[in-house]
């Protein structure tokens, strides 16, 4: 290997030999050389893969979840049509609560409304509280509905569909029965069978 010095410009005018030697060193093993720029790129790729995987897993997990039918009833607040602000926790330890999700555009809701009013009127003296949660209706239509069926229990709009998300409801009507100590006893999808419904309320009231 010829030594290269600054004072020998004629034999190696472009400094090629130095470069060639450096090149020979790196290609000696004939293996591709390590690419140092990969590391931040690799991190980005891994981060993207982790994010997408997490997104898919959580998405599928949430899809597979059943409507909430046991365990503690999630607390929520509701502003009723007559301006009251109520919370589910107001009734914990005191009342059995029935939460009914309804909508004016849903025919089964219209069908079950008289039944719900009857059951409410029968059981309200025993301290059972009914809360009607409306989805997506303009106030005018909701109030018409309430007047039409003489509904006397509290009703309010589920702002942003938050309460429906909490209870993982799918459609309307759905009815949740919450025990005195705040546990979900039953989650009826569709119209509840009146006999079974009344029986459940009896059982719930019997609990201390």
């Amino acid at each position: 290997m010829t030594e290269v010095t600054q004072n020998q410009p004629i034999s190696d005018p472009y400094g090629d030999q130095e470069v060639l030697d450096a090149y020979a060193d790196t290609t000696a093993s004939n293996a591709p050389s390590k690419n140092r720029m990969m590391t931040p790129f690799a991190l980005v790729v891994v981060a993207a893969v982790v994010l997408i995987s997490a997104m898919v897993v959580r998405g599928i997990y949430k899809n597979e979840l059943e409507p909430l039918s046991d365990g503690p009833a999630p607390d929520f607040s509701l502003k009723t049509y007559d301006g009251q602000d109520i919370r589910l926790s107001d009734y914990k330890g005191k009342n059995v609560v029935v939460i009914n999700f309804w909508q004016t555009n849903c025919p089964p809701c219209h069908e079950e409304a008289p039944m719900l009013v009857n059951v409410y009127n029968d059981y309200k003296s025993q301290g059972v509280v009914f809360i009607g949660v409306n989805a997506k209706d303009p106030d005018k239509l909701a109030l018409d509905y309430i007047a039409q069926y003489n509904i006397t229990y509290l009703n309010g709009l589920d702002i942003g569909d938050k309460i429906q998300e909490l209870y993982r409801t799918d459609g309307y009507p759905e009815t949740i029965v919450v025990s005195r100590d705040g546990e979900v006893l039953e989650h009826y999808i569709g119209q509840p069978n009146e006999i079974a419904f009344r029986r459940l309320l009896d059982q719930a009231l019997e609990q201390s």
Binding site: P32, N35, M38, F41, A42, V45, V49, S53
Partner: peptide, 22 residues
């Protein structure tokens, strides 16, 4: 999907760390 995603990414990163894409 997850197996394919993770597997193909792993294979790619493996080869790229070895310098194949320089």
């Amino acid at each position: 999907l997850l197996i394919t995603l993770v597997g193909s990414t792993a294979a790619f990163l493996w080869r790229s760390r070895q310098g194949y894409f320089k």
